[in-house]
Design a protein around this nucleic acid. Structure first.
Lengths: 339, 339
DNA sequence: CAGTTTTCCGCATACGTTTTCGGAAAAACC
DNA sequence: GGTTTTTCCGAAAACGTATGCGGAAAACTG
């Protein structure tokens, strides 16, 4: 298959071999009308025999754009993000695209470097969930200015671009209302970073549920924090100092809930008798711990595939007057035994 | 920052602006000796002002190789693989490389397409864990022939290339010996696909432990299967039909163990009283289920970072007489309550 | 057979970099 | 002031592909 010591067979090689111009080869392989059927057939056979494969880099340089979509996530190993990646990859693969995965590590400057890198690689589009520490979003303006399609998912910001999120407010509302209807009255919310939209929306839902059910909102019952297990542990400690003592906690996501969960185990606090717990995102782990964690299910894989589809749509819509859309997916409350 | 309507500022733009040749710009920015310090400074300032960013595609075409490393994994969302990806990304990022992530979906032909795609993108190197259905490995020969560095991890094959694995045999041995020492006598092994090295090695360890402890090996106590939860469920059903009834099961990995675990819950079989379970890979879930799962811990993140380091080493070693190495990482038995 | 159309293909160029080679101008030497 | 050396820079080619344009040969028209 490869007779030339490791070098890729190029269009020029074929040209020399066939004693025609490179342009002829190119046109023959792309089935242009200006080449005789006989020659096309010959060329195709030779290309097959030598295992010719067009050089994507050269094509990209010529076209000014790659068949690649860039993805920026805060973390890869988190279940939610890896499921999203999975969804993106599947859609991209089917459309003949590859994915470039960058991790921001929840770090603002690394996110900037990542976008720059993706831009310099002329990706066809970018899908991103912003990091916890990102407050300023100028780096995404540059993407828009270069006319590169952009889709945000889950952790979005208020830039004019495609977005796919879950109905965080509704999800939070249902979770908290469920707690109330189960008889809990002193419900704490371990919230995420306040500048993130998801945090705000989940707080909104929390308050709405209290309000609707005539429960007085207390400021000290919202505990700010982050999105990791450690934040859950820290949150638990703050929570235990409150008085009157809370009887339930609604966590901004599952890792935080797991942090609380583990602390309860350690301190021998009965779940849900002494403290009820609700998480958000329904990681697979939720149903397997004991007692199984009640959590708001978030369609991660679907989010990824929808984000990718939206991106491809924008890529393929030549018109620059593309109207950004916002898809809001439904959540589903998975009631288990921690409530 | 961008005054030209969305187009990337190029080296030619700078050249026109400065009224010098493009080559001068290139040399100035790369700090070549042949340019006067004064001009270098001017050029750098202009480049900064216009936000010049070298076009990676053009550089790649010129160099014949990208600053990108391709990764092929069977699945993204599995905890083990996403942790490996995490490790790879971190060291790649530090070395100025980006990663191209492809998913084979445990499918042989998709794996071939993935490698082809990576080749056509002139990646600097490839890291891969082969799919369950891969028996033939010609597609990797092509990679070697193109002199592209290659590292296998976990699911390796017998190609002459860098490899990083865990000591599967030792890990399995310790797990099974632990079972024996805990008093279990009829120990079944739910094995993986037989053509994978990991499966073979874990079987070896299983047999070695039996042998050393004077327990008769029974052919029917090895149940072939796959690597997923469903395979665990299937395995459980076969296992229950055996007589005498087994009292312990050593699973080829955690998903399989979880499958068995869930079946036990469903069928009200007491763990570990009626059936002891040991998994492999120590997913985070293992410690959180009830009872917590005994499992062989496999350093996933470290595997990724080591694989990436080996790859970079090979990339940077100009000499084509590179000697493939094999790193074997240690496992650690995490004894919990299912045994 | 001259003129027109059609068929088929090559030339040249562009994409943005890097790099080799060589050459002009300035500086240094005797 | 002529020769050599040094300093600095430009021209051009190359990487592999795609494409507008033009041109030669063949086929068809009258």
């Amino acid at each position: 298959m490869f007779g030339n010591g490791g070098k890729q067979t190029t269009i020029k090689d074929l040209a020399k071999y066939m004693k025609v111009a490179p342009s002829t080869i190119s046109r023959a392989l792309r089935d242009y009308p200006d080449i005789s059927d006989k020659k096309k057939k010959e060329i195709r056979e030779l290309a097959n025999k030598l295992g010719y494969q067009p050089d994507s880099i050269a094509q990209s340089l010529q076209r000014g754009r790659t068949k690649t979509i860039g993805v920026i996530v805060p973390e890869i190993k988190h279940d939610f993000f890896s499921s999203v990646l999975d969804g993106i990859e599947d859609v991209a693969y089917k459309a003949g695209y590859s994915i470039f995965v960058c991790k921001s590590n929840e770090d603002y400057t690394r996110e900037i470097i990542n976008t720059r890198s993706l831009l310099s690689y002329s990706v066809a589009g970018i899908i991103v969930s912003i990091s916890q520490t990102t407050q300023d979003t100028d780096h995404f303006d540059v993407v828009k200015m270069r006319n590169i399609p952009l889709v945000f998912f889950d952790r979005v910001c208020d830039i004019k671009a495609n977005k796919v999120v879950v109905n965080d407010e509704q999800g939070a509302f249902e979770a908290v209302e469920h707690l109330i209807q189960s008889g809990y009255k002193r419900i704490v919310h371990l919230a995420g970073p306040t500048h993130l939209e998801i945090s705000k929306n989940r707080i909104k839902g929390y308050r709405a549920a209290l309000e609707k059910n005539g429960i007085q909102f207390r400021k000290e019952y919202i505990i700010d924090g982050g999105l990791d297990e450690e934040d859950g542990i820290r949150g638990f400690k703050k929570l235990m100092k409150l008085s009157p003592k809370p009887d339930a906690v609604f966590c901004v996501n599952d890792p935080v809930a797991i942090g609380v969960f583990m602390q309860c185990k350690e301190k021998k606090i009965r779940i849900p008798r002494q403290l009820a717990i609700v998480g958000f995102s329904d990681n697979p782990i939720a149903s397997l711990i004991n007692p199984p964690l009640t959590s708001v299910s978030q369609p991660a894989y679907e989010m990824g595939s929808i984000a990718a589809k939206m991106l491809l749509e924008e890529i393929n819509s030549k018109s620059s007057l593309f109207k950004p859309k916002r898809r809001k997916l439904k959540t589903k409350l998975m009631v288990r035994s921690t409530t």
